[in-house]
């Protein structure tokens, strides 16, 4: 699935329990996208809300995220701080361009 950066209104950071790395990454995204009209939230991977435009999760959870949120753009990350995939997402939301995932 692909989505244009300008169309992203809600980003979900998903992890298994929603209490650890997803919380840290969500806070980081929220800070870096503070000037954009984008909501960032963190949830457990099995309760991704229907209005999510993009789902960011650890690559080990990507298959569960695809099952839990079919048809969404899923961005798997390997490291939660400074991952290139996250930097590309931020750049696309700020400046436009396609996000593939």
């Amino acid at each position: 699935m692909s989505i244009q950066g300008n169309d992203v209104k809600k980003i979900i950071v998903a992890c298994d329990a929603g209490m650890g790395s997803s919380v840290m990454l969500a806070s980081q995204l929220r800070r870096q996208l503070a000037k954009q009209d984008v909501t960032v939230a963190h949830t457990p991977v099995n309760s991704i809300p229907a209005d999510a435009d993009v789902v960011v999760c650890h690559q080990g959870l990507a298959d569960r995220a695809r099952k839990s949120a079919p048809g969404k753009t899923i961005i798997p990350v390997q490291v939660f701080i400074g991952d290139p995939a996250v930097n590309r997402l931020i750049a696309a939301v700020k400046g436009g361009g396609a996000i593939d995932g």
């Binding site: 298994d16 329990a17 929603g18 209490m19 650890g20 790395s21 840290m24 457990p44 099995n46 650890h58 080990g60 959870l61 490291v79 939660f80 701080i81 400074g82």
Partner: peptide, 24 residues
Amino acid sequence: ERERSISTYVGEGVAIPHGTLASK
């Protein structure tokens, strides 16, 4: 259990171990 499935290492010599959803 959580650590064996996915590492909680987050960089800079820091890890943030925590439980699973079921362990809440």
